[in-house]
Amino acid sequence: MIKIENLEKIYRTEEVQTKALNNVSLAVKEGEFVAIMGPSGCGKSTLLNILGLLDEPDGGSFAFAGTEVAHAPERRRAELRKKHIGFVFQSFNLIEELTVAENVELPLIYLGVGATERKEKVAKVLEKMQIMHRRNHFPQQLSGGQQQRVAVARAVVNSPSLILADEPTGNLDSSNGNEVMELLTELNEAGTTIIMVTHSEHDARYAHRVIRLLDGQVVLEHAHV
């Protein structure tokens, strides 16, 4: 599904150049659950942003579902994002002016799904995430765990083939965190590919495979059994 080769990303300031990613190559197959780990500043989030088509690499190639997208124009990237990729963030990133249901509905609006179908899909996914009773609340009225469930619901409502999760449990206590990890596992078992950045060894155990980064390079890759 994803194949990157010799990926490079360099951040430049006036005085220094930092190689955030240095010759990173990896491949993720459809249906896989991959965890990316490493200390702060090792390039995990940069890699995830590039995989999510939110950022562009400075070198190397990136094939998404067989197509080269490393330097695709913004319009094409937006198109791919809305059709194929769902995002879950550490800080949830829910829009505060929108209710739970409206937040979840947003990707469907951008996909041009009709109103009736949207209502059905939103209800279904909220039901599944057990947050239906909170559908008309605003994000700030929910607990962290509930907010992250809404964020996951929003990420999966349009049934993307790939979910990118950036420290999905980072702001949650352990029981809420576990709940979110269960959710992701379920989605993965239903066929969704998941790439997750995490600090937590505990969370990484849910993944099939762990990729460890250090100073922008892949230093270790191993499978969980």
């Binding site: 995002f87 002016e97 951008y110």
Partner: peptide
């Protein structure tokens, strides 16, 4: 955040 999330979800510049 609103802008970022929308863009992440694939909102085009036009919208």
């Amino acid at each position: 955040k609103e802008i970022g999330v929308k863009k992440t979800l694939g909102a085009g510049r036009f919208s």
